[in-house]
Design a protein around this nucleic acid. Structure first.
Ligand SMILES: [Mn+2]
Ligand SMILES: [Mn+2]
Ligand SMILES: [Zn+2]
Ligand SMILES: [Zn+2]
Lengths: 154, 154
DNA sequence: TATGTAAATGAAAGTCATTTTCATTATCTC
DNA sequence: GAGATAATGAAAATGACTTTCATTTACATA
């Protein structure tokens, strides 16, 4: 039985192709950022992604990471999570649909939230004369681990 | 028939009392910020509030505005709106219940959204082991005015 | 109504994530 | 290959806050 190829590589190809189609050039730096992003466990900040991508392309500048992340978000290949204090985390969108997040205020853990009940609100927006093109929804609280720790400390 | 008193003044008193009860001192600066905030049409940034409050108390520093806004939010008298780019707008909470916002990506106008359909999502959070203590929800798009302008330009 | 004390203020300096500038380099089209 | 133009990165700039610290002020207490 042939060992199946790692699933991340063909995805990388597809993403590069989509960037290309959108009029961007394919560079070693962009490949590195994309691979770093694919390798992160969950949503991370630009610095983290920079650190990881540098292991692939050591002379990569942080500016390029920001620019690449911006392009990925604009093209719909990545999305952002806004932390409580406004800082931004990035993650790849692996399927077509977006999702929201649960953010732990204690340890910063980010959990995925598949549900998106924003449809009815778009209606409300339309009633106010708005055309709604995007939305952001984050839930903040405390994850199971942090609650356990707190309980122990008592 | 006696002319009814302007509704904002007794509210100001109540807010000052609440600050006082929470252990804060009442200063001319804080009164000015509170009155400026009450006079703004919709959620505004610290600079705007500073500018307006200075008309009441000219030597007010921007730092004090930030500190006062922070206190108001902590005491539940004001709330924030996060713009698309992470900048923060402040507004007084005139009733007990919170609400969300529609933000125009073109002119920055902010409309109020009474509906808050986040209840079911809290459930989803609980299923992930989270205790949800807060959430943020903003819709982005284009207001009626900006759409009209765009149509004219065509 | 004084007085002591802790809180509040504001000018200046600091922070920090992100953006801009601009000279150089690399990709892709022909 | 050559040329056009997009991308890169070092350095500097930005901007929205926050911190520091010497000075002023509110207000609890006498
Ligand atoms: Mn996610
Ligand atoms: Mn509002
Ligand atoms: Zn946690
Ligand atoms: Zn608008």
């Amino acid at each position: 039985m042939p060992r199946s190829r790692a699933p991340s590589e063909p995805r990388l190809e597809g993403r590069l192709r989509r960037l290309r189609t959108a009029g961007h050039r394919i560079t070693a730096q962009r490949k590195a950022v994309l691979r770093a992003l694919a390798g992160m466990g969950c949503a991370c900040g630009a610095e983290d992604i920079h650190a990881r991508a540098r292991r692939i392309y050591p002379r990569l500048g942080l500016v390029t990471v920001y620019r690449t992340l911006g392009a990925l978000v604009r093209e719909g290949l990545a999305q952002t999570v806004q932390l409580d204090d406004g800082r931004i985390r990035y993650e790849l969108r692996d399927d077509g649909r977006h999702h929201h997040h649960l953010v732990c205020l204690s340890c910063g853990a980010i959990a995925r939230l598949e549900t998106c009940a924003v449809g009815p609100l778009q209606q409300a927006g339309r009633r106010r004369g708005f055309t709604v093109t995007a939305h952001r929804l984050e839930l903040f609280g405390y994850c199971g681990d942090c609650r356990s720790l707190e309980r122990e400390a008592r």
